[in-house]
Nucleic acid binder design. Structure first.
Lengths: 225, 225
DNA sequence: TATTATCTAACTGTCGACAGTTTAATAAAG
DNA sequence: CTTTATTAAACTGTCGACAGTTAGATAATA
């Protein structure tokens, strides 16, 4: 079933570069040079180039038409934007699912929830399961483009969570919300499911904004002599 | 203002590969081999790899975890999906713009419309201007993530239009719709603007589905001996 | 000193090559 | 004749190198 999952060097570089950008290691609009990055990560330029293409798509960096790649950084407004789009995509998924003549089964969503419910203490896996739950939610719509758009947003959010994650203080709340959404869907109460989702995402957004703000202050102090 | 626009070989390859896939030159799930493509386009493998990464993002091909890149093709359902997402993004842009305390100016949208209104005979530029109009519409929301998500959808749609384009039989209707949307926005009639947009996109979707179906039939006949 | 011109160093896009791995083909066994 | 084992060809990921171009430093001019 194609589980090979070869580890490419670029994957590792993507991960580390995202972290470095989020932690404010680079200044805004700073030019990221491929040779310097290649030396930093102990590779040739090829995996660095591949990694930069991924980060361009995710919006962490931007490519000027001159070819230069510059750091974009993540502001509170960016996070608000991100969650705004995330909500319209996910709420549309629920609405689209409800409109289907033959609705796709809720089972994958439920299975994911069960795994999360059991392991919700282990914060490492929790973040993955949280995102997987929302991905399953999107998949309910059976719309390839919707999934593709969501993956762009979802991966960005996930990578931010991965780094800023403080151990999921809201773990129990999250599990409870996920449970409520499934119940509402089961009972065909779509509006209630969407409302729960909205509140759920809003809280996630607030937490992330706070965390990123903290990080930013931390950075400002440590660099101001 | 950064107008350099260097021509990379990969851009050319992206264009030609998209066209080949849409015209049905490759079978579904066919394996695209980098060396073969490199020879076909008279380049080394590097620009081919870069081009494939773009096509992966656009959904024309998919990368298996083994590293293989396989052709995905475009079905009528794919187009429906594409337009469904496009509509929720664009309609959200209008709603978000309307909610702003200090609304972004409509001028860029109007400027784009004027250029389209003048040149709408020249079908070559028309396609570009049509997409630019809708991009300006998205920009009204002032949401970076929304724009990024839309660009993914928009570029895919644009590339399909570019190839299947039969000379824009609906040109006048399109210009008229664009004009109506601007008027509605000017008068703060958001619901009407969204309704016009919905009808506008629906007609675009129908045209594209028809065209792609025609292409498919054409292909079936020419390959069946 | 401010501004323009020149030059050098460095970067990006591209190339060909290599190594490990995977696929496909062939041979061996049931 | 089908299924498993073996082998060989080919592909992907990675590397170092080169050339044209760009950015920044230095020199020249006002």
């Amino acid at each position: 079933m194609d589980l090979t999952e070869r580890n490419r060097l670029s994957d590792n570089i993507v991960h580390k570069l995202r972290k470095a950008i989020l932690l404010g290691e680079f200044a805004l609009d700073e030019h990221l040079r491929e040779p310097a990055l290649a030396e930093r990560f102990g590779t040739s330029r090829t995996p660095v180039r591949d990694a930069l293409m991924v980060l361009i798509r995710e919006g962490f960096v931007a490519k000027l038409s001159s070819g230069r790649v510059v750091v974009q950084g993540i502001s509170s407004e960016d996070i608000t934007n991100l969650y705004e789009v995330r909500f319209i995509l996910e709420s549309h998924a629920l609405a689209a699912w409800a409109k289907q003549i033959e609705r796709l089964p809720l089972q994958p969503l439920k299975n994911c929830f069960e795994r999360m419910n059991l392991n919700f203490v282990r914060s490492g896996e929790f973040s993955e399961l949280d995102m997987e739950y929302h991905e399953q939610l999107i998949r309910l719509a059976g719309n390839k483009s919707l999934l593709q758009s969501w993956l762009g947003i979802g991966e960005t959010i996930h990578s931010i969570l991965e780094i800023t994650n403080q151990g999921y203080p809201r773990g129990e709340q999250i599990v409870q919300d996920h449970s409520k959404i499934i119940e509402f869907l089961d009972r065909n109460k779509i509006d209630e499911a969407v409302a729960t989702l909205k509140q759920h995402l809003y809280e996630g957004q607030m937490t992330m904004v706070e965390t990123v703000e903290k990080l930013k202050k931390l950075k400002t102090h440590s660099t101001n002599p």
